[in-house]
Design a protein around this nucleic acid. Sequence first.
DNA 1: CTCCGGCCTCACGTCGCGTGAGGGTCAAGC
DNA 2: GCTTGACCCTCACGCGACGTGAGGCCGGAG
Lengths: 255, 255
Amino acid sequence: MSGYTVGQLARLAGVTVRTLHHYDEVGLLSPGGRTRAGYRRYDDAELDRLQQILFYRELGFPLEEIAAILDDRSVSPTEHLRRQRELIGDRIRKLEDLAAAVERAMEARTLGIQLTPEEKFEVFGKDYQENWEDEAEQRWGDTDAWKQSQAKTSTYTKADWERIKAETDAVNDALVAAFTAGAAPDSPEAMDAAEQHRGHIGLNFYECAPQMHRCLGDMYVADERFTATYEQLAPGLAGWLRDAIHANADRQEQS
Amino acid sequence: MSGYTVGQLARLAGVTVRTLHHYDEVGLLSPGGRTRAGYRRYDDAELDRLQQILFYRELGFPLEEIAAILDDRSVSPTEHLRRQRELIGDRIRKLEDLAAAVERAMEARTLGIQLTPEEKFEVFGKDYQENWEDEAEQRWGDTDAWKQSQAKTSTYTKADWERIKAETDAVNDALVAAFTAGAAPDSPEAMDAAEQHRGHIGLNFYECAPQMHRCLGDMYVADERFTATYEQLAPGLAGWLRDAIHANADRQEQS
DNA sequence: CTCCGGCCTCACGTCGCGTGAGGGTCAAGC
DNA sequence: GCTTGACCCTCACGCGACGTGAGGCCGGAG
């Protein structure tokens, strides 16, 4: 029968032996039994329980409360999982608010605006999940403002469009050719194709220094929408292109 | 000249008086001065510092480390904000991993599948906050943005992508809302939405300075593959977004 | 039979405060 | 001028969730 010693379980779960001892002491997680020598023996049930414990701990619950939650027999395991998901969602939402506050702070900083003391701290004030409903109302309330659409046309004409499309296709063809030929991302052909790509952008859209080109390359693998377009041309192309762009950027900067 | 007593500052920041006393004791946040009677007097500088402290504390940093971080004069306030955003992103990512693990557990449960012990705990293994100094050095020591992005995106999981997709949707919703409401590209709403878009990229992919953002905006109208995604959301959105991005970039640089 | 790694039980230390105890301060109202 | 009540001060001990040894007992490999 599978059983674990403290050390084994600790390693598995990424906690210390002392932590397991502590959980035993406070009755949060007692071993299923002991060997004659007094060694703690944990088995699968305890392993599962420990997993649950760590979930709730990660979410900041005190051990005593965790014990209460887990020992509540009226809550099914599935229900636990649902709860955990919700709690994680709450926590993420709070962090996103924090991120938004940081964003505001940056904005205020670059604009030289002074935030009021209240504004500076309001994000810390919201305790856990108090006003979910108010927030939702506020968020959806704005929806009323969705009224009419009025399109502003792009500054590009259809002719420009056609030309750019043709050029883009040509550049992409070159990329695909080099890629499918098995050229390494740091091979001359790959770097040349990347440079062509850079030139295409610089010619048609905006100045694209190697450094900026790198960012673009990263975005091709990082932003799924863009990744998709390249992966459609050839599976693996997005990552390869990024590497090629980087190699080329390095080369360009060597001078 | 505005000054706060402990109680006032405590109420503002949503912490207890004792906490402020403690921060004074350990030298993390000392009042600007004292009254004759020995009352602590805090002013705006301390208020700002407290805000920073709470940010880092929220992210789980020990007080001593927070002091070290904040007292590092080689880090500009703007840099702090960037770091904080990074850290929040990390934290969110970790929680998403947790959520994914919960998801897997639910799935396994309904399917009656047994997960291996390793699978059960692997999500707890990554000590996201492990070693600030080393990581910070690795992450920010090299100013090249691409290394960040590479390190960041290579660790993305499916859950991350789901989150990013959700975030992207939210950002796009905001854009569509402003656009269909008839807001001009250089209206505050449009620029705010554009800034949100920029923040989204910065949080998830790589640092996206206004100049870089301009490039992206141009590409949205210039490259049909990317244009399509926006035109699908609302006809005319791509061009409008480009203009909004430019207007916002101009605004951001005005300082 | 002896190592060496792992296990055991105390038991004290740490971090970030909470929670009084005992006492001074200050603006308001009687 | 005096009281009242809210607020401030400084100790100082307590607590949760472990960390960190100290000192000693298994158990399998050589």
